[in-house]
């Protein structure tokens, strides 16, 4: 052990051994995402390494793939639906839980974490049974509702942290200066909750766009979302065309990370 320690001191950098381990992890984490991009630019129709040639031919074929394009629109629709539904619910729950004296607060917090503790596949079975009994299976809005249910803790979480950070005296000051309750809410309360709402919305939208297992269980063939369709497609073959379609998600992921970094800073996500 001592010899190892002496050896590491001779290596350059702040944390030499640690850095080597982490470098491997970075490659491990990024490789599956990046390889999809590489394959999507490949010329031949067989996936091989190293690729013979690069071309954009697979991207050129996307406009003709009606099934994938309509699935993409449906995914956007359900992701928007769940985000827009989650915003008011998240704000109200955050304000209610923290600003008001509520009995059974601890059990309620556990209750609101239920979507995280119930395994996703089980949530899928539950929603299939409930929606099935009600006769709603096969409508797209049920998928949006399902996404809201399973991801709502993200919104509550990020709004709650902002409610905690907001000093009630600020609102009292606004009221003392003659602002009406509604004016106070719109001009003081909402703006200070905004960072939390934006973070929550970003997470809910991107996760909604990507959601797979619950959608797989509760969608019927004519309302499949993009991840479900990609899943069915790669079970039969792994043509570079699918890679070109899937690369949409890689671009969305990079865009989401960029937006999150600009708006709140990625470091914020690692704070409790």
């Amino acid at each position: 052990m001592n010899r190892l320690f002496r050896f590491t001191r001779q290596l350059p950098g702040e944390y030499p051994l640690l850095s080597i381990l982490i470098a491997f992890q970075v490659v491990f984490l990024m490789l599956p995402t990046l390889i999809v991009l590489v394959v999507s630019f490949q010329a031949g129709d067989l996936v091989r390494f190293p690729p013979d040639d690069f071309s954009l031919q697979w991207y050129a074929q996307i406009p003709g793939e009606d099934r994938f394009i309509s699935a993409f629109y449906r995914s956007i629709a359900v992701a928007l639906f769940c985000t827009l539904l989650a915003i008011p619910i998240g704000i109200l729950t955050g304000l209610g839980l923290i600003r008001y004296d509520i009995r059974f607060e601890k059990p309620l917090q556990i209750y609101f974490l239920l979507p995280f503790t119930v395994p996703l596949v089980v949530s899928g079975v539950i929603l299939l049974i409930i929606l099935g009994e009600l006769g709603y299976i096969g409508s797209l809005w049920t998928v949006g509702l399902a996404l809201t249910i399973i991801n709502i803790p993200f919104m509550i979480w990020s709004v709650t942290s902002r409610v905690n950070a907001l000093d009630p005296e600020l609102e009292n000051a606004a009221k003392n200066l003659g602002a009406d309750e509604i004016q106070t809410f719109i001009n003081v309360t909402l703006p200070s909750l905004m960072p939390g709402v934006i973070t929550g919305s970003l997470i809910m939208f991107v996760l909604g766009l990507n959601e797979f297992i619950v959608s797989l269980i509760i969608t019927t063939p004519d309302i499949v979302t993009l991840p479900v369709l990609i899943y069915t497609a790669i079970r039969s073959n792994i043509s570079p065309l699918i890679a070109a379609i899937a690369s949409v998600y890689v671009f969305v992921a990079f865009a989401a990370v960029l937006v999150a970094d600009r708006l709140v800073g990625l470091e914020q996500f690692l704070k409790s």
Binding site: T33, N210, I234, Y249, A253, F254, A256
Partner: peptide, 11 residues
């Protein structure tokens, strides 16, 4: 965060 936001199916 890029893998986190890429989704299970694509990965």
């Amino acid at each position: 965060f890029v893998p986190f936001f890429t989704g299970v199916i694509v990965r």
